[in-house]
Design a protein around this nucleic acid. Structure first.
Lengths: 216, 216
DNA sequence: AAACTAATAATACGACCGTTCGTATAGTTT
DNA sequence: AAACTATACGAACGGTCGTATTATTAGTTT
């Protein structure tokens, strides 16, 4: 099965990819509103009008940027966590992957969605709606992961409640690390809280991933 | 002792007050960057140049806006909480006051500082520095309040750790309520988490404020 | 009443905003 | 080779941005 490719479309795709890569970077630092078409074009050394033609409106560019960020997020956080077997250890992996994603600065401005959600939380329109949807998606994944651990008898908790708490720790660590030029102490603090919370919810027989094999 | 007042200065003060009141409103929804001098002047029906003269630069306007927001925050959260006696009940009051402040939308866009801190977290400059300082101030207050409760033998915890966790619950509830047009369910969830966390840290004899006198 | 000061206003500036338009170029199809 | 299509470009549009300069008005002091 041979796939004929249109060189023009390939070129367009590459441009689009480059634009969105840069857009995600800029927006994670300066926000989706601070992301301007002129600046984006200048940094990529392409024409403003040519760039604009790819999206048709600022709002479409913003939406495409959030979609691009979502793909990066899935690759950086979701997929690595799903590589761990379901159950307690996957809940822990999810936390570790998230903190790592924030600390590694996958987006230079910290978690893209924490930033964008705060930027658009009090507004209306498609951008906000999509951000809300992505957030729901994520919370659902965390709840589901917790649910699996409960089903496997490794955890005892209200999934929604525990998911809320874990998420709170993630976001709080992310913000504090940004605001205070953190050297890692804040992430350690978050890890400590997560560990304590999970430990208190673990069932008796469950092996705790952060203890290397034997109990202390 | 009689105080002679200069009518011109009074007039200027009133204007300044009105400007900052509006500025804080706008910024809590559209951010400190979205806060523009032209828009501010238009909404207040005064001249752009006259308004500008009060601050001298956009950055000074932003700093003055954050300072104004801080005063409102102190009035809405800190002072009411300090009306409660030190100890476990004050820790609880702090949480209640904060959630109430967020839920009542003292700022139309939810917590001003959550928004502004995310906006400036990844940047440099005086605005970010001041936001970081205000945050430190707040965290310190929470830790100190927890410390008092420990000294009084009503609580057992690491103050920094518990403060981190409570703050995480506050901010997380604030964001989720904005993003999902909350009817109050999210605040209830936060209250539940806070209650559970405080209950687990309370010492044996401590009366729990949310139980009306007798145990269940 | 004159001199002075503080607050406000009018006007203008260059830079950048998102957007539109006409055109040139590269690549595909016939 | 001709017709067509997708991508990219330069130039211009009306607006708004933050800021500077200059003038006017309101209020105080002498």
């Amino acid at each position: 099965m041979e796939t004929r490719v249109d060189g023009r479309l390939v070129r367009g795709d590459q441009t689009r990819r480059a634009v969105l890569g840069k857009a995600v970077e800029i927006a994670s630092v300066d926000g989706l509103e601070g992301l301007s078409i002129g600046r984006l074009a200048k940094e990529l050394e392409i024409s403003k009008s040519g760039l604009f033609a790819h999206f048709g409106s600022k709002e479409e560019l913003q939406l495409a940027t959030v979609r691009a960020a979502r793909r990066i997020y899935v690759t950086a956080v979701v997929e690595p966590a799903l590589a761990t077997a379901p159950g307690f250890s996957r809940v822990w992996a999810l936390s570790e992957c998230w903190l790592d994603y924030s600390q590694r600065r996958v987006f230079p401005g910290g978690c893209f969605f924490a930033k964008a959600s705060h930027e658009y939380g009090a507004r209306r329109g498609p951008v906000r709606d999509y951000l809300a949807e992505v957030n729901r998606e994520w919370v659902q994944l965390v709840e589901q992961t917790i649910g699996e651990a409960i089903s496997l008898g490794e955890l005892e908790a209200d999934p929604a409640q525990l998911a809320f708490e874990l998420n709170a720790y993630y976001d709080s660590a992310n913000l504090a690390s940004l605001l205070h030029d953190d050297d890692g102490a804040i992430y350690a603090q978050a890890r400590h809280s997560i560990r304590a919370r999970l430990e208190s919810a673990a069932t008796a027989g469950t092996a705790l991933p952060w203890r290397s094999g034997r109990s202390r």
